[in-house]
Nucleic acid binder design. Sequence first.
DNA 1: GGGCGGCTGGCGGAAATCCGACATCGACCT
DNA 2: AGGTCGATGTCGGATTTCCGCCAGCCGCCC
Lengths: 172, 172
Amino acid sequence: MTTTPTVTRQHTVIDSPYGALTLVATDGVLSGLYMTGQRHRPPEETFGAPDLRPFGEAARQLNAYFAGELTEFDLPLRLEGTPFQRGVWAELVRIPYGETRSYGELAGRLGKPGASRAVGLANGKNPIGIIVPCHRVIGASGSLTGYGGGLDRKQQLLAFERGAEGEAPVLF
Amino acid sequence: MTTTPTVTRQHTVIDSPYGALTLVATDGVLSGLYMTGQRHRPPEETFGAPDLRPFGEAARQLNAYFAGELTEFDLPLRLEGTPFQRGVWAELVRIPYGETRSYGELAGRLGKPGASRAVGLANGKNPIGIIVPCHRVIGASGSLTGYGGGLDRKQQLLAFERGAEGEAPVLF
DNA sequence: GGGCGGCTGGCGGAAATCCGACATCGACCT
DNA sequence: AGGTCGATGTCGGATTTCCGCCAGCCGCCC
C-alpha cells in the first residue's frame, strides 16, 4: 500500500491592524498565514485543530512588526510548492523592509526574464502572507497591480513600512 | 449540478445445476446474472438490497431452461455497455439453442471481420450469463477457448443443450 | 494434432499534451 | 495618462493520445 503522509496540522487566529490572521502550522512549523477573504485561501477544513501552542514565537514577532519594532522576521518556515514557486518565494524574503521590486525584476533574478506573469501567479499563491513579503512586489510602472488580500491592504502595508515620515502613498 | 442517476437496484440468489446464480435488477429489469467465482463479476456492494420480487418470471424461465423445457428466453433485459459490446450481445441472443458460432463469425456479422479478439473481450464482459448465451461461442477450430464461469461450466452447458441424445461432448 | 509468430480490434488506465487563466511588460496609439 | 495588443512563463484541469491487455485467427512448422 502507499505510505500515508500523516502530517499533523494545527491553527490559531490572531488579531492585527489588517484584520484577523489565520496561522497554520504543519508538523509544528509555520506553513500558512492567511487574511480574511484572501484569494486562494485554502478551505477551512485543511487547517487542522485549533491550538495556539506552536505559534508563540510567530505571534511575538508579528506583534513587534505591527508595532514598527521589527523589520526582519526570523522564523522556521515550511514552504511547499513547485520548484519555480519556491524560487520566487525565496526571492521575496530577500527584499528589504520598506523597499519594493517589480515582477519583471524578480523574474530576471531567477534567470527567466520573460516570466514576469508567472512570478505574479506564484506571488498570488504565497501561503505565508506578510512574513513572506509578497506585498513588496509591484508593477514596473509603479502601480500596485494586485494582492491576494486586497489592494487596500497592500497599499497600507507599503505605506506603513515606508514609515510615518514618508510622503503620501501613491494611490493607483 | 449534474443530475444524479438515482437507479434502484435489487438482487437475489437462486440455485441451479451450475451452482448459485446471482440475479441483479436495475429499475426492476434484469441487468445481471453471475455465477459463483465468475471473472469480471462486479463487487457485491453494487448489487443493491436483497429482494426476490423482481425475479419471479426470470426464475421461472431459468428453471424451465434447466429442466430442458424451454429453449428461448423471453424477458426484458437491461444491457449496458459500449456500442460495440451491445452489438456483440445482441448478436449472441440470435444464436439458436444447441448451436454454436465462432468468434470470427460473429465479428464478420458485425461488419468487422478482424475483430474476433474484440468479440472475445465483449463476450467476457457479458453481464447476463446463460440468458445471453455467450457459452455458445467457441473458437474457429472448435475449441472452447474460454468462459468467464470456467471452461467446465461452458462444456456442461453446451453438452446439455446438445441434448441427452447427442454424442459425447468434444473435450477441449 | 500442438506450438509458435504476427496480425487484428476494442477497451481502460496512464501518460502526454493541450488550453485557459493570471497580481506582467513594452510598444504603440489617442 | 489610459487603453489595446502581442509575447511571455507557469500551473492545473481537461482532453487527447498511447500502450498493454485479451475468451481470436491464420499460416507455418514439427
